[in-house]
Design a binder for these strands. Sequence first.
DNA 1: ATGGCTCTCGCGGAGAGA
Length: 257
Amino acid sequence: MRVATWNVNGLRARLDYLTHWLAARQPDVVGLQELKTPTDDFPHEYFADLGYHAAVHGQKSWNGVAILSKLPLETRQIGLPGQDDFGSRLITATIDDRLLFSTVYCPNGKTVEHADYQGKLGWYDDLTQHWQAEYELPAILCGDFNIVPEPLDTWRGASGDGGIFHTAAERKAMQRLLDKNLIDLYRNQYPEEQAFTWWDYRGGAFHRKHGLRIDFLLANQLGVQAAKDVIIDRDYRRKIDGLTASDHAPVYADLDL
DNA sequence: ATGGCTCTCGCGGAGAGA
């Protein structure tokens, strides 16, 4: 089973590009973030024609998450409890009764001085409280976490410490979540590798290798045991057939499930 | 030091993103 996460930066703007990627990589389950589309406007029939069921938690203009699945899926949770005011940022489903799959779009925080920064930390605390340390199924928690876990995960290295996405408080919040028996699949497979999942659109950041690793596939122990290979799909951060990419690359893993 | 691009809404230009 191939599972993936991708912040598409606008579902409607990315529909042709996303379709190209689905055809090329043939993922079984995809967590999408930043739909910027209301739930009722989600193009279910379009994805059905591509062979995907969908569970959707959308919103006008901003945020919005969804799960695409070739296998039957059953929605388990829509929205992070207690955090409705922060937008549509979490959806969870079981896939074919074999996998618990949750995808999140964690708040950005804007700047360390902004009120949203404290809100981001609170949102993380609620996510950590919501996530169970033990699931009977293999479980994946994936998405755009908007935190750089360690200096290796940013082009700025240790000189980035203290800036938004790079603060000690954010890293502790991330660690408390990981302490719920979650493993970062990419970092687990590549302990020393520097690889990014996001590059600013501006200033040729992609070609200058000025990126961040902020999109993760986290897994419980059963999920880690099933994981075979993890790929950060940098090819799909480039323009393809004149189509503009998201500023995030997809990340996918093959699970022996 | 700053902004550098792209998205949405909606029809001009502002806000958000990371």
